[in-house]
Design a protein around this nucleic acid. Structure first.
Length: 381
RNA sequence: GUGCGAUUAGUUCAGUUGGUAGAGCACCAGAUUGUGGUUCUGGGUGUCGUGGGUUCGAGCCCCACAUCGCACC
């Protein structure tokens, strides 16, 4: 994987670039739709490509490992062929899922034991078998196995957690270097910077990861994890201001799991290049729409008789073909089509947002545009 | 026609020895950040079928009427 820096904003740390994988190019800053179990819920690949303009999507190691399982994925020839997506795929390692949705888990230095949320069966992820698993899935970018520390953890716990993550990173990296891709195309890995909301821990985490992996061409970029997990947004921005300047300039930076449109613009201005978040799809499925004019809850009865288009300034065909009253009706009637329309719209909006951010960084007026846009998109309609 | 039962929130139903009403769902809002098609939080929206009576006080007791259901002529 190769990253080329293209333009830098003079008034902020925002930048544009492009990275290349064997499945295609990705322009940064970019938003990556989440396709946990091998599908971006409710959206055809055709629409992802032609309407939403997605350039890379996510899959999740935890979910895919449990179902359909490695055997099936391997027989299929990897996740790309299995789900018929020819663009780049990034897989999360599953560390976050073990933190967020498995209550029954035991984390040790060796790895993480957990029970399946599907059938209660017992499993263990180690850094080594996690590399093997992501090789089997065949993603273009694999994420290191980490422990996601809660946003309200005290410094002692956060330090202990970081030490564990660092040990896992060393082993993950070693295994990554020792093994080869299985399906004939290149795979990169991203270390994950943890350290909770503690500046010194964050600095230590960057130093450790960059010292360990900085010379390796296979390390495609660096991720910032453990943010947007309960701490105030301002604290998240502070951490970005500490971490980003310490990361190598010639590698993309990925802020995991973030976030709202405002979060994304704020992070871009602090030097972040990649984002993923369930918000446009999950919240979309539940009636929340992000538009250029603000945020709407389509379940609200105020839309009952509003026949104006969803988002007159929107990038998707649904923004013009579908009116607010109709989408409101679909949600109230619990039609699955409601979730599809909302997901299509929200993802198109997110991709449009980063596309416009790129254009304004390159035009040199990003900061002004960002302030104006944050004000617009955070309005409650 | 006769007998029995029912009638309380949008709906299905609770409601103690008589002290001006509650629950689920629905509805109305809010939350959701490396996805369990969710989950969580808050909100009661009522002429207790109608009209009388007893009582300090009636959703509850008495009478009449209305409507619905069941059974029997």
């Amino acid at each position: 994987m190769k990253f080329t820096l293209k333009a830098k904003d003079s008034a902020s740390s925002a930048r544009t670039g492009v990275f290349t994988t064997d499945h295609g190019e990705v322009r940064t800053p970019i938003f990556m739709p989440v396709g946990t179990v091998g599908s971006v819920k409710g959206v055809y690949h055709r629409d992802l490509v032609q309407d939403i303009n997605a350039e890379i999507i996510l899959g999740n190691t935890y979910h895919l490992y449990l179902r359909p399982g490695l055997d099936t994925l391997n027989k299929a020839g990897g996740l790309h062929r299995f789900e018929s997506w020819n663009g780049p795929i990034l897989t999360d390692s599953g560390g976050f899922q073990i933190f967020s949705l498995t209550k029954i888990r035991k984390i040790t230095e060796e790895g993480c034991k957990f029970q399946s949320h599907i059938d209660g069966s017992r499993h263990m992820f180690t850094p080594e078998n996690n590399v093997d698993t992501q090789r089997m899935i065949g993603s273009d970018i694999m994420m290191a196995l980490d422990e996601c520390c809660p946003g309200d953890a005290d410094e002692r716990y956060a330090a202990k957690s970081l030490k564990l993550t660092q040990g896992w990173l060393e082993r993950f990296y070693r295994r990554f270097c020792e093994t080869e891709p299985l399906y004939g195309y290149d795979q990169a890995m991203f270390p994950i910077i943890q350290g909770c909301v503690y500046p010194e821990l964050r600095r230590r985490a960057v130093d450790h990861a960059v010292t360990l992996t900085g010379d390796c061409a296979g390390v495609g970029g660096y991720a910032i994890g453990g943010l947007a997990v309960g701490e105030p947004a301002e604290q998240m921005y502070e951490m970005l201001e500490i971490v980003c300047p310490l990361l190598p300039e010639d590698r993309p930076r990925y802020l995991m799991g973030v976030g709202t449109p405002a979060n994304i613009l704020a992070a871009i201005s602090r030097g972040v290049d990649m984002f993923d978040c369930v918000m446009p799809t999950r919240n979309g499925r539940n009636g929340m729409l992000f538009t250029w004019n603000g945020i709407m809850n389509m379940r609200n009865s105020k839309w009952q008789d509003d026949f104006s288009p969803l988002d007159p300034d929107g990038a998707s065909f649904v923004d013009r073909e579908c009116c607010k009253a109709y989408l409101h009706h679909l949600f109230i009637a619990k039609e699955m089509f409601a979730a599809m329309v909302a997901s299509e719209h929200n993802l198109a909006f997110y991709l449009d947002l980063v596309r416009q951010a790129r254009a304004h960084i390159e035009a040199g007026d990003f900061s002004l545009w960002k302030e104006e846009t944050i004000r617009k998109v955070t309005t409650r309609l």
